[in-house]
Amino acid sequence: MSELGARYREAFAASRARGDGPLVFPFLAAGFPTPEETPDLVRAALRGGAGGFEIGVPFSDPLADGPVHQDAYTVALAAGATVETALEACRVARETQPEVPVTLMGYLNPFLSYGSSTLASETNPGESLGEPLEPLARRASEAGVDGIIVVDLPVDESDAAREVLARYGIALIYLLAPTSTAERIAAVAERAAGFIYLVSLTGVTGARDQVARDFEAFVSRVRTKTDTPLAVGFGISRREHVQQVGKLVPAAIIGSALTATIASASDGARAAAVEQYLEVVTGRRSEETGK
Protein backbone atom coordinates (compact mmCIF):
# COMPACT_ATOMS: atom_id res chain seq x y z
CA MET A 1 0.00 0.00 0.00
CA SER A 2 1.31 3.45 -0.86
CA GLU A 3 1.87 6.07 1.78
CA LEU A 4 -1.19 7.81 3.21
CA GLY A 5 -2.23 10.79 1.12
CA ALA A 6 0.35 10.03 -1.59
CA ARG A 7 -1.99 11.08 -4.37
CA TYR A 8 -2.40 14.54 -2.88
CA ARG A 9 1.34 15.02 -2.65
CA GLU A 10 1.90 13.83 -6.20
CA ALA A 11 -0.83 16.10 -7.54
CA PHE A 12 0.61 19.13 -5.73
CA ALA A 13 4.12 18.29 -6.97
CA ALA A 14 2.95 17.87 -10.57
CA SER A 15 1.07 21.16 -10.40
CA ARG A 16 4.15 22.90 -9.02
CA ALA A 17 6.26 21.44 -11.83
CA ARG A 18 3.79 22.66 -14.44
CA GLY A 19 3.65 26.07 -12.77
CA ASP A 20 -0.10 26.32 -13.31
CA GLY A 21 -1.15 26.26 -9.64
CA PRO A 22 -3.06 26.37 -7.53
CA LEU A 23 -5.17 23.29 -8.08
CA VAL A 24 -8.90 23.86 -7.87
CA PHE A 25 -10.88 21.22 -5.96
CA PRO A 26 -14.56 21.58 -6.76
CA PHE A 27 -16.98 20.60 -4.01
CA LEU A 28 -19.99 18.75 -5.36
CA ALA A 29 -22.99 18.01 -3.15
CA ALA A 30 -23.68 14.38 -4.01
CA GLY A 31 -27.14 13.84 -5.41
CA PHE A 32 -27.82 17.49 -6.16
CA PRO A 33 -30.10 18.05 -7.90
CA THR A 34 -30.52 14.29 -8.47
CA PRO A 35 -28.33 11.24 -7.81
CA GLU A 36 -28.60 10.32 -11.51
CA GLU A 37 -26.92 13.57 -12.61
CA THR A 38 -24.01 13.49 -10.20
CA PRO A 39 -21.65 11.30 -12.30
CA ASP A 40 -22.09 13.63 -15.30
CA LEU A 41 -21.32 16.67 -13.18
CA VAL A 42 -18.16 14.97 -11.88
CA ARG A 43 -16.97 14.29 -15.43
CA ALA A 44 -17.86 17.84 -16.49
CA ALA A 45 -15.82 19.29 -13.64
CA LEU A 46 -12.84 17.17 -14.71
CA ARG A 47 -13.18 18.42 -18.30
CA GLY A 48 -13.25 21.96 -16.93
CA GLY A 49 -9.94 21.48 -15.14
CA ALA A 50 -10.73 20.14 -11.66
CA GLY A 51 -7.45 19.20 -10.00
CA GLY A 52 -9.13 17.08 -7.36
CA PHE A 53 -12.51 16.58 -5.77
CA GLU A 54 -14.47 17.03 -2.68
CA ILE A 55 -17.70 15.07 -2.73
CA GLY A 56 -20.17 16.12 -0.06
CA VAL A 57 -22.60 13.73 1.61
CA PRO A 58 -25.95 15.46 2.16
CA PHE A 59 -27.10 15.74 5.78
CA SER A 60 -30.38 16.80 7.32
CA ASP A 61 -28.69 19.12 9.83
CA PRO A 62 -25.63 20.70 8.20
CA LEU A 63 -24.75 23.17 10.95
CA ALA A 64 -21.50 24.42 9.39
CA ASP A 65 -23.12 25.19 6.05
CA GLY A 66 -24.70 28.34 4.70
CA PRO A 67 -28.05 28.50 2.88
CA VAL A 68 -26.77 27.38 -0.56
CA HIS A 69 -25.54 24.01 0.70
CA GLN A 70 -28.46 23.60 3.11
CA ASP A 71 -30.87 23.96 0.22
CA ALA A 72 -28.82 21.67 -2.02
CA TYR A 73 -28.76 18.97 0.68
CA THR A 74 -32.49 19.25 1.19
CA VAL A 75 -33.08 18.77 -2.56
CA ALA A 76 -30.57 15.91 -2.77
CA LEU A 77 -32.07 14.06 0.21
CA ALA A 78 -35.56 14.44 -1.22
CA ALA A 79 -34.21 12.95 -4.46
CA GLY A 80 -32.92 9.94 -2.52
CA ALA A 81 -29.23 10.77 -2.11
CA THR A 82 -27.25 8.70 0.42
CA VAL A 83 -23.63 8.00 1.35
CA GLU A 84 -23.73 5.51 -1.52
CA THR A 85 -24.45 8.33 -4.00
CA ALA A 86 -21.33 10.13 -2.83
CA LEU A 87 -19.19 6.98 -3.00
CA GLU A 88 -20.38 6.40 -6.56
CA ALA A 89 -19.35 9.97 -7.47
CA CYS A 90 -15.91 9.32 -5.98
CA ARG A 91 -15.60 6.12 -8.00
CA VAL A 92 -16.52 7.98 -11.22
CA ALA A 93 -13.87 10.62 -10.54
CA ARG A 94 -11.26 7.96 -9.79
CA GLU A 95 -12.02 5.97 -12.94
CA THR A 96 -12.16 9.03 -15.19
CA GLN A 97 -8.84 10.46 -14.03
CA PRO A 98 -6.73 8.05 -11.97
CA GLU A 99 -4.30 10.74 -10.78
CA VAL A 100 -6.74 13.26 -9.22
CA PRO A 101 -7.05 13.14 -5.44
CA VAL A 102 -10.61 12.47 -4.28
CA THR A 103 -11.92 13.56 -0.90
CA LEU A 104 -15.20 12.51 0.67
CA MET A 105 -16.74 15.10 2.98
CA GLY A 106 -19.65 14.84 5.36
CA TYR A 107 -21.07 15.05 8.85
CA LEU A 108 -20.43 12.30 11.34
CA ASN A 109 -23.90 10.80 11.81
CA PRO A 110 -24.50 9.48 8.27
CA PHE A 111 -20.94 8.08 8.29
CA LEU A 112 -21.50 6.29 11.62
CA SER A 113 -24.80 4.94 10.40
CA TYR A 114 -23.36 3.66 7.11
CA GLY A 115 -23.21 -0.11 7.03
CA SER A 116 -24.84 -0.56 10.43
CA SER A 117 -27.80 -2.82 9.76
CA THR A 118 -29.60 -2.88 13.07
CA LEU A 119 -30.45 0.61 14.18
CA ALA A 120 -33.15 0.31 16.78
CA SER A 121 -31.71 -2.80 18.37
CA GLU A 122 -28.29 -1.19 18.77
CA THR A 123 -28.38 -0.02 22.36
CA ASN A 124 -24.75 0.22 23.32
CA PRO A 125 -22.65 2.06 20.76
CA GLY A 126 -19.32 1.27 22.42
CA GLU A 127 -16.91 4.00 23.41
CA SER A 128 -14.79 4.02 20.24
CA LEU A 129 -15.86 5.66 17.00
CA GLY A 130 -13.47 3.47 15.06
CA GLU A 131 -15.48 0.31 14.67
CA PRO A 132 -18.70 2.00 13.43
CA LEU A 133 -16.65 3.73 10.72
CA GLU A 134 -15.11 0.54 9.38
CA PRO A 135 -17.79 -0.21 6.72
CA LEU A 136 -17.40 3.33 5.38
CA ALA A 137 -13.60 3.04 5.30
CA ARG A 138 -13.77 -0.25 3.41
CA ARG A 139 -16.23 0.98 0.76
CA ALA A 140 -14.51 4.36 0.38
CA SER A 141 -11.23 2.59 -0.20
CA GLU A 142 -12.84 0.45 -2.91
CA ALA A 143 -14.22 3.63 -4.52
CA GLY A 144 -10.74 5.12 -4.70
CA VAL A 145 -11.16 7.77 -2.00
CA ASP A 146 -7.89 9.32 -0.78
CA GLY A 147 -9.14 11.27 2.19
CA ILE A 148 -12.25 11.85 4.29
CA ILE A 149 -13.28 15.11 5.95
CA VAL A 150 -15.70 14.85 8.86
CA VAL A 151 -16.95 18.36 9.55
CA ASP A 152 -18.01 17.68 13.13
CA LEU A 153 -15.15 15.43 14.19
CA PRO A 154 -12.51 17.72 15.71
CA VAL A 155 -8.99 16.49 16.41
CA ASP A 156 -9.86 15.88 20.07
CA GLU A 157 -12.28 13.11 19.13
CA SER A 158 -10.50 11.82 16.05
CA ASP A 159 -7.88 9.24 17.01
CA ALA A 160 -9.96 6.07 16.66
CA ALA A 161 -11.47 7.28 13.38
CA ARG A 162 -8.08 8.22 11.97
CA GLU A 163 -6.66 4.80 12.79
CA VAL A 164 -9.46 2.85 11.16
CA LEU A 165 -9.32 5.01 8.00
CA ALA A 166 -5.55 4.61 7.84
CA ARG A 167 -5.94 0.83 7.90
CA TYR A 168 -7.78 1.19 4.60
CA GLY A 169 -5.25 3.63 3.13
CA ILE A 170 -7.43 6.70 3.66
CA ALA A 171 -6.24 9.93 5.28
CA LEU A 172 -8.47 11.70 7.78
CA ILE A 173 -8.35 15.29 6.55
CA TYR A 174 -8.36 17.82 9.38
CA LEU A 175 -9.79 21.31 9.34
CA LEU A 176 -8.24 24.35 10.96
CA ALA A 177 -10.01 27.69 11.39
CA PRO A 178 -8.86 31.24 12.06
CA THR A 179 -9.95 30.70 15.67
CA SER A 180 -7.74 27.60 16.10
CA THR A 181 -5.21 28.06 18.89
CA ALA A 182 -1.50 27.25 18.61
CA GLU A 183 -2.12 24.15 20.70
CA ARG A 184 -4.85 22.92 18.36
CA ILE A 185 -2.76 23.66 15.27
CA ALA A 186 0.05 21.60 16.78
CA ALA A 187 -2.33 18.72 17.56
CA VAL A 188 -3.53 18.67 13.96
CA ALA A 189 0.00 19.03 12.58
CA GLU A 190 1.07 15.98 14.54
CA ARG A 191 -1.69 13.82 13.02
CA ALA A 192 -2.34 15.24 9.55
CA ALA A 193 -1.86 13.35 6.29
CA GLY A 194 -2.85 14.29 2.74
CA PHE A 195 -3.57 17.94 3.33
CA ILE A 196 -4.92 20.27 5.97
CA TYR A 197 -8.12 22.08 5.09
CA LEU A 198 -7.90 25.73 6.13
CA VAL A 199 -11.28 27.33 6.73
CA SER A 200 -10.50 30.79 5.38
CA LEU A 201 -12.97 32.67 7.52
CA THR A 202 -14.84 32.62 10.81
CA GLY A 203 -18.25 31.54 9.56
CA VAL A 204 -20.26 29.01 7.58
CA THR A 205 -19.80 27.92 3.96
CA GLY A 206 -20.88 30.36 1.26
CA ALA A 207 -19.46 32.67 -1.40
CA ARG A 208 -17.98 35.98 -0.19
CA ASP A 209 -16.83 39.03 -2.13
CA GLN A 210 -13.30 38.91 -0.82
CA VAL A 211 -10.84 36.53 0.75
CA ALA A 212 -10.70 37.12 4.50
CA ARG A 213 -8.16 39.82 5.32
CA ASP A 214 -6.36 37.85 8.02
CA PHE A 215 -5.96 34.77 5.82
CA GLU A 216 -2.29 35.34 5.11
CA ALA A 217 -1.48 35.58 8.80
CA PHE A 218 -3.53 32.44 9.43
CA VAL A 219 -1.56 30.52 6.78
CA SER A 220 1.75 31.51 8.30
CA ARG A 221 0.58 30.49 11.79
CA VAL A 222 -0.11 27.01 10.42
CA ARG A 223 2.92 26.94 8.09
CA THR A 224 5.35 27.33 10.96
CA LYS A 225 3.96 24.14 12.54
CA THR A 226 3.75 21.72 9.63
CA ASP A 227 4.99 20.68 6.18
CA THR A 228 1.71 18.98 5.29
CA PRO A 229 0.21 20.68 2.22
CA LEU A 230 -2.55 23.19 2.88
CA ALA A 231 -5.73 23.77 0.93
CA VAL A 232 -8.16 26.58 1.52
CA GLY A 233 -11.93 26.62 1.38
CA PHE A 234 -15.01 28.60 2.52
CA GLY A 235 -15.79 31.84 0.71
CA ILE A 236 -13.67 31.14 -2.38
CA SER A 237 -15.77 31.74 -5.50
CA ARG A 238 -13.83 33.65 -8.21
CA ARG A 239 -10.73 33.31 -10.31
CA GLU A 240 -9.20 36.29 -8.52
CA HIS A 241 -9.71 34.56 -5.13
CA VAL A 242 -8.06 31.42 -6.48
CA GLN A 243 -5.08 33.41 -7.74
CA GLN A 244 -4.82 35.31 -4.48
CA VAL A 245 -4.79 32.22 -2.22
CA GLY A 246 -2.67 30.36 -4.78
CA LYS A 247 0.26 32.53 -3.78
CA LEU A 248 0.08 30.92 -0.33
CA VAL A 249 -1.32 27.40 -0.73
CA PRO A 250 -1.30 24.73 -3.48
CA ALA A 251 -5.07 24.15 -3.67
CA ALA A 252 -8.35 26.06 -3.41
CA ILE A 253 -11.72 24.46 -2.72
CA ILE A 254 -14.81 25.95 -4.31
CA GLY A 255 -18.20 24.89 -3.02
CA SER A 256 -21.17 27.19 -2.69
CA ALA A 257 -20.47 29.17 -5.87
CA LEU A 258 -20.38 25.94 -7.87
CA THR A 259 -23.53 24.66 -6.18
CA ALA A 260 -25.25 27.95 -6.99
CA THR A 261 -24.12 27.58 -10.61
CA ILE A 262 -25.68 24.12 -10.76
CA ALA A 263 -28.85 25.37 -9.06
CA SER A 264 -29.37 28.16 -11.55
CA ALA A 265 -28.67 26.09 -14.70
CA SER A 266 -31.63 24.56 -16.46
CA ASP A 267 -32.25 20.85 -17.09
CA GLY A 268 -29.77 19.50 -19.59
CA ALA A 269 -27.43 22.49 -19.22
CA ARG A 270 -25.93 21.70 -15.81
CA ALA A 271 -22.91 19.72 -16.96
CA ALA A 272 -21.98 22.45 -19.44
CA ALA A 273 -22.40 25.09 -16.72
CA VAL A 274 -20.11 23.15 -14.37
CA GLU A 275 -17.47 22.65 -17.05
CA GLN A 276 -17.52 26.31 -18.00
CA TYR A 277 -17.40 27.51 -14.38
CA LEU A 278 -14.37 25.29 -13.73
CA GLU A 279 -12.67 26.61 -16.85
CA VAL A 280 -13.11 30.14 -15.57
CA VAL A 281 -11.91 29.57 -11.99
CA THR A 282 -8.93 27.50 -13.14
CA GLY A 283 -7.97 30.25 -15.60
CA ARG A 284 -8.43 28.12 -18.72
CA ARG A 285 -11.00 30.58 -20.00
CA SER A 286 -11.20 34.29 -19.33
CA GLU A 287 -14.28 35.50 -17.43
CA GLU A 288 -15.36 37.68 -20.36
CA THR A 289 -15.66 34.85 -22.85
CA GLY A 290 -17.03 32.71 -20.06
CA LYS A 291 -20.11 34.83 -19.86
Binding site: A64, P125, G126, E127, E157, S180
Partner: peptide, 14 residues
Protein backbone atom coordinates in the same frame (compact mmCIF):
# COMPACT_ATOMS: atom_id res chain seq x y z
CA UNK B 1 -19.61 6.52 29.02
CA UNK B 2 -19.92 6.38 25.23
CA UNK B 3 -22.16 9.45 25.21
CA UNK B 4 -21.41 13.18 25.26
CA UNK B 5 -18.21 14.63 23.86
CA UNK B 6 -17.49 17.53 21.55
CA UNK B 7 -18.59 16.90 17.97
CA UNK B 8 -18.44 20.47 16.79
CA UNK B 9 -16.85 22.29 13.85
CA UNK B 10 -13.24 23.35 14.47
CA UNK B 11 -14.18 27.04 14.50
CA UNK B 12 -16.14 26.51 17.73
CA UNK B 13 -13.67 24.30 19.56
CA UNK B 14 -11.65 27.12 21.11
Amino acid sequence: GPFGGQFAPETLMP
